[in-house]
């Protein structure tokens, strides 16, 4: 055993056995997985593309994104109309069995308050300045989203016709975001009265 060559060879043999023992232990006894790992090792060294692919597999995927929280912003006007004028309650209510008198009394109130909200928060103006039921001329190059032609539409502008509806356009609105703690998806909070 004094022969140094024997010592080196034995040491190498022990190392190889230990390495295989460790590799087989890690791969839970599968030689195939050991060879596959070795293959991947060399391929990653050789190829940039494979390296990227393997990197992607190894990196723990980012946590699955939660579905985006609904934005309350489109509900702001509805919120106001409900808060001040109870409009949502009215539209969702089954009024088929209510008497006309009952509806009349309620609607007058809802109408008054809801109108006040619109006047306060929106600046509305007619799209066309003329009086309804009066004649009007529509020049070429009109904006088709602002003016809709109906009836006997033939030929080229200018068109002469009768103004049936003057249209509405929002010139400005103010619907500021409420404080962060306020849930805009709650259009009407539940109310609980304590005795």
């Amino acid at each position: 055993m004094d022969n140094p060559i024997v010592v080196v060879l034995l040491t190498l043999a022990v190392i190889v056995v230990l390495k295989w023992t460790v590799l087989l232990a890690l791969s839970k006894g599968s030689f195939g997985r050991v060879f596959a790992a070795a293959g991947v090792f060399f391929k990653v060294l050789a190829s940039e593309e494979t390296a990227k692919k393997v990197q992607a597999v190894l990196t723990p995927p980012a946590e699955a994104k939660k579905p985006a929280k609904l934005s309350g912003e489109p509900l702001r006007l509805l919120n106001l109309l409900q808060r001040e004028g109870r409009l949502l309650d009215f539209l969702l209510e089954d009024i088929s069995s209510a008497s006309d008198e009952q509806i009349g009394a309620g609607v007058r109130e809802i109408h008054k308050k809801s109108q006040a909200v619109l006047k306060e928060h929106l600046t509305l103006e007619p799209v066309l300045a003329g009086q309804e039921e009066e004649s009007i001329t529509i020049q070429a190059g009109f904006d088709p989203s602002a003016i809709r032609l109906t009836g006997n539409v033939t030929g080229e502008p200018p068109f002469k016709g009768t103004l049936k509806h003057h249209g509405w356009r929002v010139r400005a609105y103010k619907l500021p975001a409420p404080a962060a703690g306020v849930d805009e998806l709650v259009v009407a909070p539940a109310e609980v009265e304590l005795p």
């Binding site: 309650d89 969702l92 209510e93 009394a105 309620g106 109130e109």
Partner: peptide, 18 residues
């Protein structure tokens, strides 16, 4: 002049008192 108290619950019309 009319005096109206609309319904307090979600049934705003049915609860209206005139």
């Amino acid at each position: 002049a009319p005096v109206t108290v609309v319904g307090r619950g979600s049934k705003v019309i049915a609860g209206t008192i005139k």
